[in-house]
Write a protein that binds this DNA or RNA. Sequence first.
DNA 1: ATTTAGCACTCGGACAGCGAGAGTGCTAAC
DNA 2: GTTAGCACTCTCGCTGTCCGAGTGCTAAAT
Lengths: 340, 340
Amino acid sequence: MELTERQRMILGLVIREYIQNPVPVASKVLVEKYPLGISPATARNELAVLEERGYLTHPHTSAGRIPTEKGYRYFVEYLMQQVELPLEERLTIRHQFYQVHAEMDQMMRLSASVLARQTRSAALVTPPRAPQSRYKHLELISLRETVALLILVLQGGLVKQQVLTLDAPYTQETLSAIAGKLNHLYAGVTVDQVRLDVLGAESLEARVARIVRDIMTQEDHQTSQGIYRDGLGYILETPEFREARSLRQVVDLLERGMFFEEMLAEAMERGGVQVIIGGEGRWDELADCSVVMARYGGESRVGGALGVVGPTRMPYAHAISVVRYVAELMGDLMYEWYGY
Amino acid sequence: MELTERQRMILGLVIREYIQNPVPVASKVLVEKYPLGISPATARNELAVLEERGYLTHPHTSAGRIPTEKGYRYFVEYLMQQVELPLEERLTIRHQFYQVHAEMDQMMRLSASVLARQTRSAALVTPPRAPQSRYKHLELISLRETVALLILVLQGGLVKQQVLTLDAPYTQETLSAIAGKLNHLYAGVTVDQVRLDVLGAESLEARVARIVRDIMTQEDHQTSQGIYRDGLGYILETPEFREARSLRQVVDLLERGMFFEEMLAEAMERGGVQVIIGGEGRWDELADCSVVMARYGGESRVGGALGVVGPTRMPYAHAISVVRYVAELMGDLMYEWYGY
DNA sequence: ATTTAGCACTCGGACAGCGAGAGTGCTAAC
DNA sequence: GTTAGCACTCTCGCTGTCCGAGTGCTAAAT
């Protein structure tokens, strides 16, 4: 039931050929283009076997073969040789990262842009998230007499802000005092350790503390907020989406980015670069798409995900290399900046 | 050379009809659908005049009329009656804004989403920008021994952050002292008033001050950073873009959002809701698109822009109402939060 | 037992021709 | 100025035909 070496060879060639140019590949071009030392007839026999096994298929009787999802899967799993990204490309990418300021938002935007450009696919980057956010520092800054800006820093350097309308004028000193008090009280706590009962119920402290708790709660539960996207346009370039079929669906999906959270969960578990081909039966909208994604963020539990979305007919080897490299780069920088 | 009342009437009807369903409108359907009290032949004569004048065209000899850009322009300028948004719709929108936390990012995301959904078009929202950023407050928070988080608040509540790697361990107290010193020194200054010479060249203060200056400089010059987008998918739904022609270009343009900055400049000048039809000769990529945009942000000089991008065949009256309403709403909230 | 040559067969895509239908422009009458 | 009538034009969908590509099968060759 196993495939022979030659069959594997041929399968690989068909897929490579098809990825390179998206027309069904015929037995003839196969033997002409590659020195297999067999005749078209033999190739046809082998192709027939591969089709029977479910790795290839036929658009219609008198057409060449195109890969099935199973075919791609086999290719990615066993046939594709993992190459490290060529030095030149690594340098191009690395170079761009050097220009970025030490700020998470900028880095994510950049990552998305780099991924998109290098793979000519749509790219997504989610912000890093800790499983449990922890209080680090609070700051209250008076903007006007009765309006203050609340800045909450969570462990790991995530900064949240909110405007606060006060019921009475407060000086900066009073505000700073309140912030100082809460900083002392809440240093390092998680959301369920935020105790409100020690504060006067109607005091400003209590109100601020409630807001802090709300923000932390939101942060722990929120999904698909602040995802960075880029290269949506590339999707439109791929021939398979020229005739908009489910294109709208795909773009919608990318805009919402919901599925990504789900996939993220798994990527978190498994680690390494994940390849999801044709929605893998679970995401109908991604029927003709593949997703290559990876977690970034070192050994610790705080991290995010990033990846690209393209047609199933995607240069997997290259995409995987790029995704892996960018993920590593982001991980390194995060470590450098935040220490995890 | 002026149009007669009846011609204006007919032009309006043709455009309305065409907007409602995108097939060339024929003389016959015109007289059948609307009680003009004229025969198809008369209508044809009038249509011929309108075509001669450049308000309408013909895809081919035996087809009905479709509006030209000039036609749309005339429509928007003189024929379309400006209606206020129906109460129900206003409530729907307003309701959504009540759920938002008092935070700029969230509000912009929400605005984009609301605009997109209500107009079924792509929507863009730029962040508010002051012509000159002013220093408000600085905070240095120790993350680890040799890593600190720099948080800079600009006048108006814009928060910038950056990670700082220190050359030696500093305690939180030392950092706070430095921040306090700079806060005292730089209260309310613009970027060109940031003086570095009063600080020891090699001190951490000086380094922080330089970073502050850099951030402010960047903020004053940066363009099209942090634009929020939504509803890109709607573009794909419009029949005129079904057959991707310059679709790619349009999507690209939206992703980069560059043109928006340019348009913003003008919108800033003129005020009110701007309508740019078919790129108006200046943006080729927007050939079949129209943009409805407005400035938000009260009388003061700090504000941003928001708008929607759809096909030239766009329900202008509605789009304009929605854009105006959302702009007002954002302006109000900003005033409430930040006082301008 | 595998490989190969040969050949019939099938299917899609391009092309041309055709007819129907829609809608105009023109002319002449109202 | 308006309208009826009519010829004319152009698109669109349908049909039939042809061509070429590529397969699957069979029988011969290695």
